[in-house]
Design a binder for these strands. Structure first.
Lengths: 244, 244
DNA sequence: GCAAAAGTGTTAATCTTACACCCATGC
DNA sequence: GCATGGGTGTAAGATTAACACTTTTGC
């Protein structure tokens, strides 16, 4: 007899499977910043004995009454004081033994923030910026998570104007190029770079110049206002916009 | 006093947060197939009262002792009898009220299978192929999941030789082009299509001809063996290969 | 005047697109 | 012999890659 013909309601379904509601769910944030011409990521010294002396990403368990996509915002606000950050879900890691506390599945997000943002406050003194290139290993499977997010960032950066979240509002083309080079890990031709950026029509010429540079100052630009609005949003918010 | 300086061990950490281990985790599979020049997806009539008469994706709760990435394989084997399928994790959906049974977060995968595979057996008679283009709505948030997976498939298809998982081993260029058109929803120029495919060097000419076609038969090709090995693997397996 | 970086254009190569005719087969 | 799709090449346009010199400023 095909049991599927008997409709169940959701309450019965839940009771039947209650033993399955026994997996922890967390989010981990790869918070990228840009400083000293290097791509950096915010890490905290692990507070677990098992990973003494190692660093880990910033994350937290998802609360039972919070949307999955809200959790990384909470983490960002708690750890950096910043809201309205750019956030993108990347991948969910669910290996059986990835966490010593038991079964914890984690959804990884990456975030781009301006390290000079006036509201940025990293209060905990165990939290620091680390150059991505210098990171050899991390607690848990966080090195894999970092690598996955970095690969995704590199891919996205070629297509959409998201890197501006890593810069202050005003920047020169040289600063922008340095940033692309830091993210992609390659050198770019200056003329071709400027041509491509111009073609994309992302920028507004501010008719201002750099100041206090020990050489000929460059022009300052900013991201077009409409794009800045669009690409400071998370992918979730963009997705909702698509639906409307 | 900064509490973070007191190292916790994992056991204490778990005890502290036990109330958080109260979220269900499931996987949902968007199983794509190709038949009658249409992209199809495998759906089941919902067995929940709340969604009576609606269809939903094939999914299941993740077992406490199973890797997240193994769960969709189990679903595939249970529902289709197929193993070694192409599977790719796409996105995790964790809205608060997405499931009437309570808090269930789901990780969506898409899969590509050959509807003519000799081992394919869809035993449950509530499970059927549906043309993707005809699907207007689904139970839960499954329409959103389907759309997200379709968008990802369209993107991947342009870059990597994965569509061959939807075809039998031998195929003509016409069949291949029809498939691309079905997935992308656009028409392609035959000459340019053949040129691009030739350039990519994905195919081996089998020196065989189509049979039983009511017109001039086309040549048959297959995917190069090495690529077939690589791209029948899931992204998890490919990722592991990268690490080695 | 020298060091440092800004700013700028052209050419060759590659890739993409659009497009039309003859050919082989089944009926 | 006719209907159906198989098979093929070329030219124009767009994109990308490589490459060097002059200008402006701070010191």
């Amino acid at each position: 007899m095909p049991k599927r013909l008997l409709l169940k309601n959701a309450e019965i379904e839940k009771a039947t499977h209650s033993e399955y509601f026994n997996i922890g769910l967390s989010v981990d944030c790869v918070i990228f910043g840009y400083e000293d011409k290097q791509l950096k990521v915010l890490l905290i010294e692990s507070d677990l004995e098992e990973f003494r002396g190692m660093y880990s990403l910033l994350g937290d368990l998802v609360r039972p009454s919070e949307d999955l996509d809200e959790a990384p915002y909470r983490v960002l606000i708690d750890r950096t004081g910043l809201k309205d950050v750019y956030l993108e879900q990347v991948h969910t890691f669910g290996g059986l033994n990835r966490h010593p506390s038991g079964r914890v599945v984690t959804t990884a997000y990456y975030s781009l923030i301006d390290v000079q943002h006036h509201e940025l406050q990293i209060t905990e003194h165990e939290v620091h910026w680390h150059a991505v290139n210098d990171i050899k290993n991390l607690a848990f499977d966080h090195k894999l998570i970092l690598d996955t997010c970095l690969a995704r960032l590199r891919q996205q950066v070629m297509e959409e104007p998201i890197v501006f979240n890593l810069l202050q509002e005003k920047f020169s083309l040289r600063q922008l190029q340095d940033l692309y080079e830091a993210i992609l890990g390659i050198e770019l031709d200056r003329r071709n770079f400027r041509k491509r950026i111009t073609l994309k029509n992302w920028l507004v010429d501010l008719n201002e110049m750099e100041e206090d540079v020990p050489h000929r100052p460059g022009k300052l630009y900013k991201l077009r206002t409409q794009l800045r609005r669009e690409y400071r949003m998370s992918d979730k918010q963009r997705m909702q916009k698509l639906v409307v």
